[in-house]
């Protein structure tokens, strides 16, 4: 019953935070709440006995994607953190980290044994295990990341000269 209540509390918190992310107009605040939402989802993954997914959720969503969003926000909106907002976000992050430490410190090592190779499996054969059973995943993810880097580089490359449409317009003006 207590477990059920814990699950319910975290889920309710997740839904409320997702709603706030969508509805808050200030994008910087929405982003801060998105980070907290990702952390809450990470805690949910942890209490569902998926600690590796919890760690990846925390690293990718609350870390990498949040930084990408922040960089885009500063590039497009030119927003600079004000002192007051800075303090609020700082306090939120410290509170979030405390919650994470409290949750993750419970049976940390046992929890990470859930999805490791079966008991008695020699650790030196871990790379073999990884490449035999999870090789396809790793190759797919490698290709994905490579494709993303290529795409982002292509999109953000510096364009030189005028484009095709501008050239056509200039030519038509000259002809007239």
């Amino acid at each position: 019953m207590v477990d059920y209540l814990i699950h319910m509390t975290f889920l309710a918190l997740l839904i409320v935070l997702a709603f706030l992310v969508i509805e808050i107009k200030d994008l910087l605040r929405a982003l801060a709440i998105f980070i907290i939402m990702s952390s809450v989802l990470s805690v949910i993954f942890y209490i569902l006995s998926a600690p590796f997914i919890a760690v990846f959720q925390l690293a990718i969503y609350a870390g990498a994607i949040a930084v990408l969003f922040l960089a885009t926000l500063h590039t497009t909106k030119g927003r600079v953190l004000s002192e007051k907002l800075n303090l609020t976000i700082g306090l939120l992050l410290v509170g979030m980290l405390l919650v994470m430490v409290l949750v993750f410190s419970v049976n940390l090592i046992d929890a990470f044994r859930v999805v490791t190779p079966p008991q008695g499996y020699p650790l030196e054969e871990a790379p073999f295990f990884l490449w035999t059973y999870r090789g396809f995943d790793i190759i797919v993810q490698g290709f994905l990341l490579l494709a993303t880097v290529t795409a982002v580089t292509a999109i953000l490359r510096k364009k030189e000269g005028v484009g095709v449409i501008e050239e056509a317009v200039e030519e038509s003006v000259k002809n007239e």
């Binding site: 997914i53 990846f56 969503y61 994607i65 993303t148």
Partner: peptide, 10 residues
Amino acid sequence: ALISMTIGAC
């Protein structure tokens, strides 16, 4: 889920 996360990040 891990692959889905990677795709989400990309």
